[in-house]
Nucleic acid binder design. Structure first.
Length: 563
RNA sequence: CGGGGAGUGGCGCAGUCUGGUAGCGCACCCGGCUGGGGGCCGGGCGGUCGCAGGUUCAAAUCCUGUCUCCCCGACCA
């Protein structure tokens, strides 16, 4: 491709409303442009990146035995009503009416469509198992689109679905997809973790997320050697805390006006971890519960909901005041509510907790002796906690893929059944597997950019090689570069030739912004030795020059050594 | 939905408080020079100041309404 013919609107300055690095660089490099909140267009060079990722996805899906299909984005509401999602998923689902007043939705994912067709078509166990996938647009009315293509309202997703006779079959399909996913992210050149994830309201029985660490990530992942989990579900051994000794009995102390953990800990000269923080909640079905955890810990709402087995909300001040004590001074001792004690609260020890009296706390409190409780792991892990003796770190990540064991969640309501060997009707066991190519692109930018711009991994760069001729138009450098371009173009490497009439600074700056992995520079200096200078974009490392005569092999060799 | 910020040539901004001929840098066009890191000189094109209404002799500027975008939070099958 000649740069003079490529629509590549690079910008010297970042857009005023961009903060995330990938957002800034992808716009500056001329890869994407915005049309509305969470609505992005891909310009030619950006779309090439996207398409290269898509090609990898397609190859690996086919290698895993999945067959490509394409299903509508615009769908009748009926299947969504039958699975309950029409009423349950809330405003994130785009809903509309056609001219006949029929209810329609814009699909946010394609379980309904896939299951609908499979239900029509599959009759016998002999037809199972199989897997389908598509590369299709998804529509979600996100409450807050952000950071360029990281979180958008319309995006392409690779979504695959497996259909099996039973749970064992699903496990095999799931494992096969997992292997494909591992290969996909390796091939795309991004750093990634596969983490345990919350199964959420889907009520499934297993899910993993693929997380690419980057500063603009929206999720947090807890990491230790041999351990990686979304902070939403992570468990770890708490950093120990020095507890004052338990007293013979709880002893009241005056704490006038001190309602926060920090204030009470400072006033009594104990570490925050020696306090018992009381978090009263109203649990659906179970009523008022006091969750107690170490003062230096925080409740993890998702883990708490999982322990409770259902949703909850924080108790209102009036409920606390009526049923327990004055807000700010409540505690488990003598409180007439059941106590859920976090696992990280050690037994024994002399804890400090609210006395259920205004301006008063208790010290020397010992769980069990002074109040009954049941246990649960409901706290958010903190950096420095340990897993199997190793301290964990917490890293921001962007979710680039998720795999999920659906079971019969969709096949049952949509009647996707088959007759087994004994002539009995059985629901199909399903799994679903999603990947967002745009997020892979953004994560790659975030992970590999430097001060000059993007440094694409080899596999997903917009072009493999950029040739930069210096000198004036019509000069010897231009001619030599042109010949080099013609020669390399016959190879399977994609080549971009900067044939613009621009100065060297501008060409180098644009080349580094766009981030093609290998740059070949043809200038007066290199012409003297009948070579083109070679530089790797990653690290801007100078490589051995390539001869202008029969350049192919040498270019290939430089290329093969790149990351 | 709560909090904060912003809409002025393609991009980035000033001007708004205190109403009075719409400005700067970059980009773009023409001519020339330069040619290994966004170079130089000269001459140009381009803007209903988000939209609607109001106040005024006069509105980018004041008032009312409205739309849009960004950031933080909530939310995120």
């Amino acid at each position: 491709m000649r740069l003079s013919e490529l629509l590549l609107p690079t910008e010297r300055l970042p857009p005023a409303d961009a903060e995330a690095l990938s957002h800034i660089l992808m716009v500056r490099a001329g890869l994407i442009r915005q049309m509305g909140a969470g609505l992005w267009s891909w310009l030619p060079a950006g779309w090439r990146v996207h398409q290269r990722i898509v090609a990898i996805l397609r190859e690996e899906m086919e290698a895993a035995g999945a067959q490509e299909v394409l299903m509508p984005v615009l769908q009748p509401a009926d299947p969504w009503r039958r699975t309950g999602r029409y009423d349950n998923v809330g405003p994130e689902l785009f809903r509309l009416r056609d001219r006949r007043e029929a209810d329609l939705v814009l699909a946010m994912t394609h379980e309904e469509a896939m299951t609908f067709h499979v239900a029509q078509v599959v009759r016998s166990y002999r037809e199972l198992p199989f897997s389908l996938f598509q590369l299709q647009v998804k529509e979600r009315d996100e409450p807050r689109p952000r950071a360029g293509v990281l979180r958008t309202r319309e995006f392409v997703m690779k979504d695959a679905y497996s259909f099996d006779r039973d749970q064992e079959g699903l496990e095999r399909s799931y494992a096969r997809q997992m292997e494909a996913y591992d290969r996909i992210f390796d091939r795309c050149g991004v750093r990634w973790y596969r983490v345990e994830s919350d199964v959420g309201m889907m009520g499934g029985f297993g899910a993993h997320e693929y997380m690419a660490p980057c500063p603009a990530g929206e999720d947090e992942v807890a990491l230790a050697p041999g351990y990686a989990a979304n902070v939403e579900v992570a468990s770890a051994r708490a950093w120990p805390v020095d507890l004052p000794p338990a007293l013979d009995a709880p002893e009241p102390v005056d704490t006038p006006g001190q309602t926060t953990v920090e204030e009470v800990a400072r006033a009594l000269g104990v570490p925050a971890g020696a306090l018992l923080k009381a978090y009263p909640i109203m649990s659906e079905g179970r009523g008022l519960i006091m969750v107690c955890l170490r003062g230096d810990h925080r409740v993890n709402d998702i883990k708490l909901a999982n322990v409770l087995g259902g949703p909850f909300r924080p108790a209102r001040e009036s409920e606390i005041a009526e049923r327990i004590g004055p807000p700010g001074y409540i505690g488990p001792v003598g409180a007439n509510v059941s106590v859920l004690l976090d696992d990280a609260v050690a037994e024994g020890g002399g804890y400090v907790c609210g006395a259920n009296e205004l301006n008063r706390h208790l010290r020397g409190v010992s769980p069990g002796r002074d109040f009954p409780f049941r246990r649960g792991d409901v706290r958010r892990v903190e950096a420095g906690d340990t897993v199997a003796g190793h301290a964990i770190t917490i890293e921001p990540c962007i979710e680039v893929g998720q795999i999920f064991k659906l079971g019969t969640r969709y096949s049952e309501p949509l009647g996707a059944t088959f007759l087994d060997e004994h002539g009995r009707e059985q629901p199909i066991w399903m799994g679903c597997y999603g990947i967002g190519p745009a997020r892979i692109a953004a994560a790659a930018v975030e992970q590999h950019a430097d001060d000059q711009g993007i440094a694409w991994p080899r596999a997903i760069a917009p072009y493999d090689v950029e040739i930069v001729p210096l000198g004036r138009e019509g000069g010897a450098e231009r001619e030599a570069a042109q010949r080099l371009y013609e020669e390399l173009r016959g190879d399977d490497l994609s080549v971009l030739l900067d044939d613009r009439d621009a100065g060297p600074g501008e060409k180098f700056a644009d080349a580094e912004l766009l981030g093609c992995p290998l740059r070949l520079t043809v200038g007066r200096r290199s012409l003297e030795s009948e070579t083109a200078e070679a530089q790797a974009r990653r690290g801007r490392a100078d490589l051995e020059a390539v001869p202008l005569q029969d350049a192919r092999k040498a270019v290939r060799a430089r290329w093969d050594a790149l990351p």
